[in-house]
Amino acid sequence: MNTAFSVILQFLELVTALLAAPLLTGWVNQCRAWLGNRTAPPLFQFYRQLAKLFEKEVVLAANASSLFRAAPYFIFACMALASMIVPTLSTEPPFGPAADAIALVGIFALARVFSALAGMDIGTSFGTLGARREMLIGFLAEPALLMVFFTASLISQSTSLSTIVQALGQREFAIYPSLAFAGVAFTMVSLAENARIPVDNPTTHLELTMIHEAMILEYSGRHLALIEWAATLKLYAYSCLGLALFFPWGIPEGTGFANLLVALPALVFKLAVGGFLLALIETVSAKLRIFRAPEFLGTAFMLAVLAMLVHLLLETAK
């Protein structure tokens, strides 16, 4: 493998992620507006929002500690790293060996812990409420996500993401019941983890129902910009992950330049469809009460465990 090229490719993946992530969020928002029969914001609205936030000065609470000021950078770095590890344009990113599926779950957890700590730092009632709820969602979503990865790992005999994607991409086209269960569980987890509708509402203005937004209420200016950007990166990473696990076709194995010409349009197409489906789910469902969220995620957890059992029972008949 050409090392220089793969480093360039890795860099390209990062830049693609950084640029495409706000676009994906913009696309989902557009679809939501269309489905809700509203006038859609422009596709590039999110960039303007980021630019505006970066321009603005930071208004900081007097008792904010340095943890509060450092957290946005760390959250952003975690999400950028996550989007570098997820196979998007090639199944063999050079950073792949640095972290496998379990470590990827760890990155998401690290970012969540940082944002929860930052939410608690000012000591306002809404901040602590948001942090508590975020951790509640997190402790149920994290094991469910891990179990989804375990199912994929059992099929591909590996926890390395690139091996998983290769193995899943090469198998013959057939419906695997375990993957179907895992897919449903993954969708539920991603909805919860990305603060989407049945669990949280990203556009809510009612503090009492907020989860993610309540936690970051005290942030402003560039800090808020980084956090918002990180949130879009998270959505992007999750979407790419879901596509790579359950629709792995179109991600080239090699790292040739010609492969890129296939990979990029395939990725754009899959993300566009995925984003539309996300908007559809959000439009047709209603937000759950906060204490129904554990049931929702418990279901996802059960489905993921079931996926593993189904794989062991039905698909490994000896």
Binding site: E57, A61, T124
Partner: peptide, 23 residues
Amino acid sequence: HIRVRITGAWDCGFPMQTARMQD
């Protein structure tokens, strides 16, 4: 830029925030 303005906590505009209101 790295401008910062230090002021009281915002807390959605609630003015009577005390330490006993946090978790």
